Computed example of a mutant assay.
Amino acid sequence: MTAIQINHLSYTYPSQAKPIFTDLTLDLDSSWKLALVGRNGRGKTTFLRLLAGQLGQQAGIKSPLNFAYCPRSLPRDQSAYLSLLGEQDFELWRLEKEMNRLRLSPDLLDQPFGDLSGGEQSKLLLALAFSQRDVFPLLDEPTNHLDAASRQEVADYLKKSRQGYIVVSHDRTFLTEVSDHVLALENGEIHLYRDDFSGYQTSKQHRDEENLARDRQLRREIKSLENSRRQLAANARQAENSIHSRGKIKPDRKAELSDKGFLSKRAAKVMQRSKNVARRQAREEAAKQGLLSNIEAAPRLDMNFKEDYHRELFVGRQLSLNLAGRELFADLDLVLPSRGIVALTGPNGSGKTSFISWLLGRQGLDCRGDWQLQ
Rank of each mutant, 00 (worst) to 15 (best):
E141T: 11
R229K: 15
S73K: 13
T176G: 11
H145Y: 03
L138A: 07
V342I: 15
S350W: 07
A59E: 13
D252P: 04
T2C: 03
N241A: 14
S169M: 08
S338R: 11
N276R: 14
H191C: 08
Q16E: 05
F90G: 06
A298T: 14
K288V: 09
L116F: 00
S30T: 13
L26T: 14
S264L: 09
P19S: 01
S122E: 01
I356N: 04
R317V: 14
E98D: 04
L257F: 10
S274K: 09
S338L: 04
Q374M: 04
E285A: 10
L74I: 05
L359C: 14
E327C: 13
A3S: 13
D208C: 05
R246Y: 05
A330Y: 08
M303A: 13
P71M: 01
V168F: 01
A127K: 04
W32K: 12
S117C: 06
D215G: 07
L257R: 11
Q363A: 14
Y81F: 08
F355T: 10
D196I: 11
E285P: 00
K248Q: 11
D302M: 09
A234H: 09
A324Y: 04
V335E: 02
I249A: 04
K254N: 06
L24Y: 02
G349Y: 01
D215Q: 10
D110P: 02
E98V: 10
H310E: 02
N66Q: 13
L183C: 12
L125C: 08
D134L: 11
S242C: 05
A148V: 15
A127T: 06
F355L: 15
A35S: 10
G38P: 06
D252K: 11
S105K: 09
A52P: 02
V270Y: 03
A324F: 03
D147E: 01
S242F: 09
K254E: 02
A213V: 07
K275Y: 06
G351A: 01
Q5N: 11
E307G: 09
R162D: 09
